[in-house]
Design a protein around this nucleic acid. Structure first.
Lengths: 253, 253
DNA sequence: GAGTGGTCTAGACCACGAT
DNA sequence: TCGTGGTCTAGACCACTCT
């Protein structure tokens, strides 16, 4: 059998489509431009709409496209870098952090969070909702879990629930001595509530950043922040170095 | 109109399916168990196979399931935490790091990397491939880009290409004084090469960790590491705190 | 060869945003 | 009301792994 078997591994159509579209995006389209609709594109490439959508989905996952129901598909701007790793460690709610308190309630946290806090599964903790904006767009939604033991003096405060109470809880937190923190990042999909806050559909891919705050030899608070995976690049602090990324003198892209 | 409009927002079928399956996984299945095949599952729930697959895809994205062609769908173990943030900064290839050199070549890096390195777009740099294993499974594939100027004494070494040369390049790197590093994490999809190394299909979701290494007042090396998003949770160093995660005395889950 | 997940088709209807 | 992307269907065939 002298047959050389090139192409014995035929590339899936949607994969090839993705390559072609990527090149087209690089050369023929500019940020914000809207693409032809899915039915036209599918016809142009001679594939079923579902196949085209498989390619578009991946491109959206990679942050190259943005699709909105009722509107169309547009070329996405480059991902924005959002600082996540704290160079100098500080409590959430400290002066100048990027978050805005939205609401506050008392509730039993998810089991995974209760384990981290070393509280009982059904023990209620302060649950603060915050949101983070960049360039006018929401980029992240956070749930902060704070056991009563971390803010003992709060009982004297009778703020109504809502943003005011959220601020009161955060203010109390600052009185604790922060000893350290650690973080983890994993892929998840947006819950219905997070999706609404992030202006995405439920199930949209998100980067879940879990932060443990240590004080008094234990875990004093836990934050679970979900970042839009399509638009965000999480940056972890330049260790002893200045950030030279957005210097207007260089970078002409 | 006094009609209360509950259920005016009908949940998509695949979303409901996902919820049902999640609960079933939590209560009725154990890690490693194989699920019924997709055709049977779809029939059991009274939906088309494509709809069921949409639910399974999300569950796989969330690390709850693992699907392998020709084999079946199994219940995935909890994600493994892999340390990414360096508590003490050190060059790649330093004693005791988690990576294994695979290969080395000279090539022009992607434009984005060339920008970080501040080299010309077509300048060739040493390109070292490494892979990272955990518990016998591949979790990450890395490409390390090192300009000639960062390893000036390498010319005296005539290692053949391959793992031996990769080790030689890394050895030379250690002579430079490391001044700092910064990292970023974003969502991507596996290239054909990465996919093979990670034992996944091309396009599989990955967490892309880009690390810049600073020495001599400039970027001396850039690493682009792709981690399997389905199986990995990236952890960023406990700042001044011991890791108490896998203490066998506690945690009976 | 049997059975699995992966790809693909050609339709249909729905929810949403703009007009 | 119209056009968009989102959901869903009922098939078909392919690539892969196991036996």
């Amino acid at each position: 059998m002298g047959t050389t078997q090139l192409e014995s591994v035929p590339e899936p159509k949607y994969w090839h489509l993705k390559t072609v579209l990527t090149e087209a995006l690089d050369s023929e389209f500019s940020v914000g431009e809207i693409l032809p609709n899915e039915r036209d594109l599918a016809a142009r490439f001679g594939v079923a709409r579902a196949t085209l959508r498989q390619a578009l989905e991946q491109l959206e996952l990679e942050g190259r496209l943005q699709r909105r129901r009722g509107v169309g598909t547009t070329v996405a701007p480059p991902r924005v870098g959002v600082a996540v790793g704290a160079e100098r460690h500080q409590w959430p709610g400290a002066a100048g952090d990027a978050w805005q308190p939205v609401d506050c309630a008392s509730a039993a946290p998810p089991a995974a969070v209760a384990d981290l806090l070393e509280t009982d599964r059904d023990e209620q903790v302060h649950t603060v909702r915050r949101s983070r904006m960049t360039h006018g767009q929401p980029v992240a939604a956070e749930l902060l879990y704070i056991p009563d033991s971390s803010v003992p003096d709060l009982s004297g405060i009778d703020s109504p629930s809502g943003a005011a109470r959220a601020r009161a809880v955060l203010r109390e937190l600052q009185h604790l001595g922060l000893e350290g923190q650690d973080q983890s990042v994993e892929l998840g999909s947006a819950s219905a509530e997070d999706a609404k806050e992030l202006d995405r559909l439920p199930g949209a891919p998100v980067l879940v950043v879990t932060t443990r705050y240590y004080a008094g030899g234990r875990t004093a608070a836990v934050s679970v922040a979900t970042y839009r995976a399509d638009t965000c690049r999480l940056t972890f602090g330049a260790s002893g170095h200045v950030e030279i990324h957005h210097d207007p003198e260089r970078r002409a892209s």
